[in-house]
């Protein structure tokens, strides 16, 4: 079965604050979300790829291109990161 691609909630933006990757809520999410997300550089790359509409496989390929990581590990970590973002409501 083909899984649908993750949809990033457009009410969240990624910003670099003092060298730290921070995902912040905007609009009405400001009231409901109650905080922010702190992402390391690899998680931020995944967020940016998803924001650009890339698929899970394309996002994993971007990780492989930038980092010393195997395609299998990259794919598994992209999926785990998407699950984490989904838990927080950043991915629908």
């Amino acid at each position: 079965m083909q899984m649908s691609e993750p949809q990033l909630n457009k009410d969240f933006v990624l910003r670099k604050v003092c060298g730290v990757n921070v995902v912040l809520p905007t609009g009405l999410q400001v009231k409901d979300f109650g905080g922010a997300l702190n992402l390391n550089d690899t998680a931020a790359l995944i967020f940016e790829q998803l924001q650009a509409g890339k698929t899970v496989e394309e996002t994993a390929a971007a990780l492989v291109a930038a980092y010393d990581v195997t395609p299998e590990k990259a794919l598994a970590d992209v999926q785990k990161t998407i699950d984490s973002l989904r838990e927080t409501g950043v991915v629908d």
Binding site: G34, G35, A36, L37, N38, L39, N40, D41, T42, A43, I46, L63, A65, A66, Y67, D68, V69, K73, D77, V78, K80, T81, S84, L85, T88
Partner: peptide, 17 residues
């Protein structure tokens, strides 16, 4: 060949306030 960066597992941490 471009040298790749050292890989760190992605982490997502929620800071509540």
């Amino acid at each position: 060949k471009t040298e790749k960066k050292t890989y760190e597992e992605p982490t997502v941490q929620k800071v509540e306030f």
